[in-house]
Design a protein around this nucleic acid. Structure first.
Length: 671
RNA sequence: GCUGGAGUGGCGCAAUUGGUAGCGCACCUGUCUUGUAAACAGGUGGUUGUGGGUUCGAGUCCCAUCUCCAGCUCCA
């Protein structure tokens, strides 16, 4: 009597009874969390309509994993409201590596609360509650959720949920309004929440591969103007092993933290008496910074840039001319008053370079004209955003400005992009993607952008063309442009897969106008150049921090503050090894000697911890043979190398700028 | 800037209900020093971020302030 319907299940046509659910189809396989029905994710307990194309979805694919995490967020909210029925619910979407849920509670969550909540969540997991979907009308929703003001607000915003708040679409989606009830085994409803779903079939699925990480405040719907809610962050994984691996990844990142390594390795510090966000570089950090700058300066000159120099302060008017001050006064330090004339610490170099450009008449024959400098700028970053070297108030930009004709712009941008990628590779970063930051078309920040629609369109198109031609992945970033023009930024992935924003290339049609820049064209007319701004590493300070983390402090030999650490086997050999050290110094190598009165094994331990790429050892045997022995970072050794050979090998390795650590396993001079 | 948490010798940490500020590493001194991740002994160093307050007595409690951490917001 039951009607038969036809479905396409996992690619194969099947005849099933009408009313068949996803659980009927896939329930045997516990790995299946939800199903994809004609492209949309559905709960397994829903009935599949006739003619549908149905596929199982597991946590192996990103969408399945997101469902798992979304369900974990629900689990958290349930636990919170169990403990505190007065807690009002915000939103609770899945995010990278986990989830969060926002609550309006009288008291912020303590670490102790998180532990208790985790236990409560585990209890719900063990009860094996099922997520049950229920379609409601807006009116029913408003009635049922009358004690949840934030949810009601979301219902009111339904339809443009994406605008309501990042993550809000996880709650109300675009279409039907649904509530998910968590049902106990006896059929009673434990808890419910407005939610678009879908969810995993049972809380059991969440196992105990979840963990609450931290709590922090977050503005409701992401706006400073709104009240702050308490956000609880958690992580959730399909298996305990994956959770463990994730926690290990975090621990690894912590070990590489440049703030920690910077202090340990005596590279830099942030003295309280100088001020927050203002780093000082110690001798060893200074070496790395200088090596970076020397190399980058050399490469710029090779690529046709002229090195220029500009002051750190200027009359305030300059920044009105550039347009920075009216727009970004908050980001600049307050003015200094000099006999009634206001001066500002510079927050950007371009106005200064423009003054160099217009210091005399320019000919088309000079273009592209490329100015470059390590320009240190000062920005009054809000106190809460400062973070080690990655966010500072003193930023040394490896900043260049190319003045070109509009026709030359695409070629110059390509030139810059190739140059940048080459530089990043020279420093050992090989994995990139690009971001194209454009102006906000209609958001509330639209007014921030100056220039005509046509100018923006041209500029954006030029950048997009070059970016696309590069073959790299290109991610759009609407609203991320500078006020004076769109930009490409290069994002680099480091050794443990984190991405860092590095270089930027900006197309600027605006500042040449404001500064009245012009050049004389072939036909004798005066024309306006286009400016291409570019910072290769963004900031030397930040890039140094990134390199510390990328290499975990084990810098490539050419950058390492101490390239060779000499370890005599005993006091008797201090002089002999000292002579080797002298030879190395004459070859331009940075050498330190361990002349402490520690005994040999302790010296080896210290040397290993020092992160020097080459450890040179000499004892009786070596001295007899006019030789020296190598110990590398990986613990491998090479004994009895004649001194001249050793010096040549080290010097060659450094000169090669090889970014991998030397080891005995490799051929000696694979430079 | 907002919310929450935290500041104890150079670094990492400890100090029962408010009752003598300790330990390890580093550093200094001495005795040592012979082949690959810690020789032994002794010693210096702190007005517990800073300024107030409560108390017979404050690292511990209260207020303010500075700095750091996490997140939010921001990032020309």
């Amino acid at each position: 009597m039951s009607e038969q319907i036809t479905l396409t299940v996992a690619g194969a046509q099947r005849e099933v009874e009408a009313g068949t659910t996803g659980t009927d189809l896939f329930g045997d396989d516990k790995a299946v969390l939800v199903m994809r029905v004609d492209g949309d994710l559905w709960d397994l307990h829903r009935e599949v309509p006739a003619g549908a194309v149905v596929e199982p979805v597991t946590a192996q694919e990103p969408e399945g994993l997101a469902v798992l995490r979304h369900s974990a967020a629900h689990l958290l909210a349930q636990a919170v409201q169990q403990a505190n029925p007065d807690a009002k619910l915000g939103i609770g979407p899945p995010i990278t590596d986990g989830f969060y849920y926002d609550f309006d509670v009288a008291e912020a969550f303590t670490p102790d609360d998180l532990k208790k909540l985790e236990k409560a969540m585990l209890k719900i997991v063990n009860e094996g509650q099922t997520f049950r979907r229920r379609v409601i009308t807006d009116a029913e929703g408003l009635e049922e959720l009358k004690d949840e003001p934030y949810k009601c607000e979301l219902i009111g915003l339904k339809g443009n949920a994406a605008d309501a708040a990042e993550g809000a679409e996880a709650e109300v989606g675009g279409g039907q309004l649904t509530i998910y009830d968590n049902v106990r085994r006896d059929g009673s409803v434990a808890w419910g929440d407005l939610c678009r779903g879908p969810h995993v079939p049972s809380t059991k699925v969440l196992g105990n591969a979840f963990k609450l990480m931290r709590s922090a405040a977050a503005y409701w719907r992401g706006s400073e103007k709104n009240p702050q809610l308490q956000r609880v962050y958690g992580t959730a994984w399909p298996t305990k092993d994956q959770l463990k691996a994730y926690l290990e990844r975090l621990a690894e990142a912590e070990k590489r933290d440049h703030r920690k390594l910077g202090a340990e390795m005596d590279l830099f510090s942030f003295p309280e008496n100088i001020g927050p966000g203002l780093p000082v570089f110690h001798p060893k950090g200074g070496i790395i910074k200088r090596e970076m700058e020397d190399y980058v300066r050399r490469r710029h000159i090779e690529e046709g840039f002229s090195y220029v120099g500009t002051p750190h302060v200027s009359k305030e008017d300059l920044f009105y001319t550039s347009g920075h001050l009216p727009y970004y006064a908050d980001g600049m330090f307050p003015p200094l008053d000099l006999d009634g004339q206001k001066y500002r610490l510079k927050a950007m170099n371009c106005p200064m370079h423009n003054e160099i450009f217009r210091s005399r008449g320019r000919s088309y024959r000079e273009l592209p004209l490329r100015f470059f400098e390590f320009g240190t700028v000062y920005r009054d970053e809000k106190s809460g955003v400062l973070s080690g070297l990655t966010r500072v108030r003193m930023i040394t930009q490896d900043d260049s400005h190319s003045y070109v004709t509009p026709e030359q712009a695409p070629g110059e941008i390509k030139h810059l992009l190739d140059f940048i990628l080459g530089l990043l590779r020279d420093f050992g970063l090989n994995d990139f993607y690009l971001e194209l930051s454009t102006r906000d078309e209609d958001g509330d920040k639209k007014d921030k952008f100056i220039g005509t629609d046509e100018q923006w369109e041209v500029a954006t198109q030029v950048l997009a063309d070059v970016a696309n031609a590069s073959g790299l992945e290109l991610v759009p970033d609407p609203g991320g442009a500078a006020f004076y023009g769109p930009k490409i930024s290069v994002q680099a992935r480091d050794a443990i897969g984190r991405t860092w924003q590095m270089s930027t290339i900006q197309y600027d049609f605006n500042m040449p106008e404001r500064f009245g820049l012009e050049f004389q064209a072939q036909d004798g007319t005066r024309q306006q150049p286009v400016m291409i701004h570019s910072a290769k590493f963004g900031s030397i300070e930040r890039f140094l921090g990134v390199l510390v983390e990328h290499y975990a402090g084990q810098f490539p030999a050419w950058l390492a503050p101490v390239q060779v650490l000499g370890v005599p086997v005993a006091e008797e050999y201090y002089d002999y090894l000292g002579e080797v050290g002298e030879k190395l110094r004459r070859a331009g190598v940075r050498v330190e000697m361990d002349t402490s009165d520690d005994r040999f094994p302790k010296k080896i331990r210290n040397a290993s911890k020092s992160k020097a790429p080459f450890i040179l050892i000499a004892g009786e045997e070596d001295r007899d043979n006019g030789a020296v022995s190598f110990r590398y970072r990986d613990g491998s050794q090479k004994n009895g190398v004649p001194v001249d050979e050793a010096v040549a090998e080290i010097a060659a390795y450094i000169a090669s700028r090889n970014n991998t650590s030397p080891t005995a396993a490799e051929a000696p001079s694979e430079a």
